[in-house]
């Protein structure tokens, strides 16, 4: 039986219809249950319900064979995983945002910039790659306020529509990556459970493609 890590919350709600139409409907509602593990009706998978930010680690360590993870979380955690399918849900962009008057090319900055983010690793990596010295502050709450109140020059965050940014007078300066929910697979499981993983992948792929058309 494959162990499938699912991130509790909104992404899981959006992923459930795909899992159902792919033939892996859970025996009970994943949203209402208080259990931590729930089997599928077909008996081929067991769902492990974990916190979104923890999913990559469960998969990387092989506790789960596969799982559904946001690309943003995958980038931040930096786990060594396979990523064979984009589910095309929970779409958003990872961006560098800030006040409009700061709009000048980041490449020309020589003095250290202050960056606030829920994704400190992504932020650090992005600015380092550009050769821009920066100090990163890890925030857990609303990140926008970091730039609004002047804690930081920039924020690195995910945006869907950009409404929150606009309402706070912030603009997107640079795009780092397109994010969405991915099917992530443990490297050992990809080989050691080849047939089961391949079935799940292809069934989910059809479900995702079916939903598009």
């Amino acid at each position: 039986m494959l162990r499938v890590a699912l991130p509790t919350g909104r992404m899981m709600k959006q992923a459930i219809p795909f899992l159902e139409s792919a033939g892996y409907a859970p025996v009970e509602s994943l949203i209402d249950t208080r259990k931590l593990t729930v089997r599928s009706q077909c008996g081929r998978v067991e769902y492990l319900l974990v916190k979104p930010v923890d999913t990559p680690l469960y998969i990387e360590q092989g506790v789960a064979d596969v799982g559904v993870c946001g690309k943003d979380v995958l980038m931040e955690v930096g786990a060594d995983l396979l990523e064979p399918l984009d589910l095309g849900i929970s779409k958003c962009r990872m961006v560098v945002a800030g006040r409009p008057e700061l709009e000048r090319k980041l490449d020309n900055l020589l003095s250290p910039v202050r960056v606030a983010s829920k994704f400190p690793r992504v932020a650090q990596h992005y600015f380092r790659k550009k050769g821009v010295p920066c100090t990163v502050f890890k925030l857990s709450g609303s990140v926008e306020i970091g730039a609004v109140l002047g804690l930081s020059h920039y924020i690195v965050d995910i945006v869907e529509t950009g409404t929150t940014l606009r309402e706070n007078g912030l603009v997107v300066h640079e795009e780092i990556a397109d994010c969405s929910a991915r099917l992530a697979v443990n490297r050992a499981a990809w080989y050691a459970k080849l047939a089961e993983v391949r079935d799940l992948l292809l069934n989910l792929k059809s479900a995702v493609e079916g939903a598009k058309s």
């Binding site: 050992a188 050691a192 459970k193």
Partner: peptide, 9 residues
């Protein structure tokens, strides 16, 4: 070399 009980090579 991989094994089903171990997450890494």
């Amino acid at each position: 070399v991989y094994h089903h009980a171990v997450g890494e090579s």
